[in-house]
Design a protein around this nucleic acid. Structure first.
Length: 272
DNA sequence: CCCGGAACCTGAAGGC
DNA sequence: TGCCTTCAGGTTCCGG
């Protein structure tokens, strides 16, 4: 499931292969992957454009093009962008292929058809209300305090809310809360300044470590070269069904929070 | 504005 | 062996 560390890794590993390349054509195997504009306009505006830069905003990947259009990509839960050459066999569940001059291909593989691409002038029209980037210098404990102020929802749900913080999803929310020793059901407003300080540190630490490990390959995450990441080997609680807490040895618990599987240690993260 | 739940979508895995 | 249920979860939409 691509979250911030996975999308960051994809951006970094895609860049050297596609930066400066020109899109010569698009093969669509499932039209529904194009969210905006129409399929016809998407194809005509994209063809012939040079890729001038890559950036990431939250879980969105943005390719800047020479005509000032932006190709915005969201992989949602099961999407991957795989590099290939002319001779490469098309992976199963490929929904779109971007052909570049020189023979490079980018396969958008997405078994569950949740992902999408947009061709827009301003990426903010796609990402709507994106909160602060957790790894930017301006993401301070004060900013986190402000984002959680007066919020009654469980902190787990708030961490996964892209308008509160950009880029965190189910896995890293669980990991950050464990590292900060905060129960996922605590309300945002109930956190003390000390707990917010711990959480702020835990979020940055968890995301940075995961980027260092090239992302977590629990299910359906592949890097552009087809390799997996290794961040999940460092997970303490996330997807820890049947395992014990590495700190205190108690069984890791799984509870639903906003219909999402939430893993935590009842000893290290005491109930509210 | 805030909150929680449903819907979207399909393959993998486990139970009986 | 095969059918059924559960799980995986990012985002948007809707009702209260």
């Amino acid at each position: 499931m691509p979250e911030l560390p996975e999308v960051e890794t994809i951006k970094n590993e895609l860049a050297p292969h596609i930066l400066g390349g020109t899109i010569t054509g698009i093969t669509l195997l499932w039209d529904g992957i194009v969210k905006k504009p129409s399929v016809e306009e998407f194809r005509s505006r994209l063809t012939g454009q040079k890729i001038t830069s890559l950036s990431r905003h939250g879980k969105y990947l943005v390719l800047s093009l020479s005509n000032d259009d932006l190709l915005v990509v969201h992989l949602k839960m099961s999407g991957s962008l795989l590099l290939g050459r002319d001779s490469t066999q098309q992976p199963e569940y490929t929904r779109a292929v971007f052909h570049l001059d020189g023979g490079t291909k980018i396969f958008f593989r997405d078994p569950r058809k949740f992902g999408g691409v947009w061709l827009v002038r301003d990426w903010k029209t796609v990402t709507k209300n994106l909160g602060p980037e957790p790894l930017e210098a301006d993401f301070t404990p004060q900013v986190l305090t402000q984002q959680l102020r007066n919020r009654k929802a469980p902190i787990k749900a708030l961490l996964c809310d892209q308008s509160v913080i950009a880029g965190i999803g189910n896995m890293y929310a669980d990991e950050a809360l464990f590292a900060a020793r905060i129960n996922p059901l605590r309300s945002g407003a109930s956190l003390t300044p000390e707990e917010i300080g711990r959480l702020h540190h835990a979020i940055q630490q968890t995301l940075r470590a995961a980027i260092g490990s090239k992302g977590a390959s629990i299910v359906n995450y592949y890097r552009p070269g087809g390799e997996t990441g290794t961040a999940h080997f460092d997970f303490k609680v996330a997807h820890g069904r049947g395992r014990n807490c590495p700190n205190c040895g108690r069984p890791i618990q799984r509870i639903p929070v906003r219909n999402r599987g939430t893993y935590f240690c009842p000893g290290c993260q005491p109930a509210p």
